[in-house]
Design a protein around this nucleic acid. Sequence first.
DNA 1: ATGTGC
Length: 476
Amino acid sequence: MDLKQLQQRGEFEWLLPATGRMRVPGVIFASRELVAAMDEKVREQIANVAGLPGIVSAAYAMPDAHWGYGFPIGGVAAFDADDGGVVSAGGVGFDISCGVRTLHTGLKLADVERDKRRLADALFARIPAGVGSTGTIHLGAAEMNAMLKGGARWAVAAGYGSDADLAHIEEHGCVAGADPAAVSDQAKKRQRDEMGTLGSGNHYLEVQVVSEIFDAAAAAAYGLAAGDVVVSIHCGSRGLGHQIGTDYLREMVVAAPAAGISLPDRELACAPLKSSLGKRYLGAMRAGINCALANRQILTHLARGAFAAVFPGVKLPLLYDVSHNTCKEESHRVDGNKRRLFVHRKGATRAFGPGHVELPPEYAKVGQPVLIGGSMGTASWILAGSAGTEERAFGSACHGAGRAMSRHEAMRRWQGRALVDELAARGILIRSPSLRGVAEEAPLAYKDVGAVVDSSDRAGLAGKVARLTPLVCIKG
DNA sequence: ATGTGC
């Protein structure tokens, strides 16, 4: 990106002044190097988002921002319904409520190293992974609706976990206002057999060791110490979320002109929050969020079963669960006034700072855990929402590394089998139904997550707490 | 991301 188009406001903050159709400025939080490496398309997309009706304060980009469908991935934008604000299917993304959760194991590195191969095989045998993977749960129509309304709370009531899990999930595992009737039969049909499955692409279940602590107080509050083994699960709402995105994107493109919305890019298709289409999308999108929360809850149950088979008596309590493709109704202070806003976070994580009323009491002093998935074979990170983050980008931070090259290019450069062998030689066991998928997810096909995390820390979005290094990866 | 792809 051409830095001359931007005004530097701090070492890690860049302003794109409002010109032309922009109603508000754009703001990018990243180091000079990361901004310079971003595609010009990111600037164009930030400017486009800044021109949407009812946008509040600014269109934001996180340090891992890259070109996405309509909105950039790593984009944050809030809208006021009373000011003509909109909701956008492309602003949430296709994998609704894709996210990460991390579980404690109570085990240390040496405990797991002894039985690593058996653990990898036990997890791979129990965690359905890959394109079109199906599980052992088959939902009828009534159960489907109950799941879409209840999210992880439904999963816990069905026997997949405990109330303690719910206390460590955003919105206690169930977002209000989900409307199963707004979800198409096609979307439900695609999900019928996909509960408790990982999916493909960059989704994974990983066994990791805490390799370094950066913030002792936050680590203590989160129950983390160097050498601890944890499990992280990265996945979303599978076929259901994708179908909801497809259905509503189409509808929003068609309805936009009649709603008085002229779009510089049809991928920005959106609907007024107060319109019936906007309300139906919100209801369906929230059902998609609940589906993802239920899915990660069931996968947690499966992981617990695999661990118990190898390490009898081991419990896997939930540290936290975050979503990074959502639109959430939240209260935020803007120019001194509290306002109800609809915050789109697409490839961006909620990152509430210390003292926020929605945090579990045990984390309130240090801020929300922000879980950052690395690429296969590289580090993942646990951050803590920084003080004042609500005044910066509505309480948001980065979500991951972001691709550095296309899947196609990665496939040309690497072979899945060679990558699996190479990682095994470094002590990282990969289990995947697809060697092609492994090649597409080659570590070097992604940007350096460390640089993204450093920028997030230094920009005051979310601070470094712990680095996690992979031991076993079940790859979709 | 995705019953990957028009």
